[in-house]
């Protein structure tokens, strides 16, 4: 019985270690820090050139697009802190003034260079209920 237990123990230890090592190495490549705009703006030096996801709202009226191209320049904000962002490619349907976006990319001295953009998808599961008596939309 103890022999069997030892066998099981060693096997699971080896498997777990292998799994842990694999997980650690693969995680390192694909990890992205998830930050809000104001956190990034507060310490730009700390976040420069790291895999980063930035969460914020599009500043109304800031969206600009180069003519005949898919190059966008806009600003995102949170708690009054603003960050200029660049994105090249097709934007989601829900990307518009004041929409909530999560950008993936790197922070540079000119601004945030995004390689990927997700805008919050409207879902049937609403956010917290509006306060009592608030006018319905």
């Amino acid at each position: 019985m103890s022999h069997k237990a030892a066998k099981i123990g060693v096997t699971s230890l080896v498997l777990l270690t292998a799994f842990g090592v694999l997980l650690y190495t693969t995680l390192g490549e694909s990890m992205q820090y998830y930050k809000y705009v104001d956190e990034v703006v507060a310490q730009p030096a700390a976040w420069k050139d790291k895999n980063l996801q930035v969460h914020g709202n599009v500043v109304p009226g800031s969206i600009g697009r180069k003519r005949d191209s898919l190059d966008y320049r806009f600003e995102i904000q949170r708690n009054g802190q603003k960050l200029t962002a660049f994105y090249s490619g097709v934007v989601p349907d829900t990307f518009k003034d004041d929409s909530e976006v999560v950008l993936t990319g790197r922070l540079t001295t000119e601004g945030f260079k995004a390689t990927d953009m997700t805008a919050k998808c409207p879902s049937k599961y609403e956010a917290a209920a509006p306060p009592l008596g608030a006018a319905p939309k």
Partner: peptide
């Protein structure tokens, strides 16, 4: 993972679809 990493390290760290696919 994002929730776990936030609970443990205080940093919210996300993993994206490529990570899932890799495994």
């Amino acid at each position: 993972f994002p929730t776990l990493s936030e609970a443990v390290t205080g940093q919210r760290i996300t993993v994206a679809a490529p990570f899932f696919n890799q495994w």
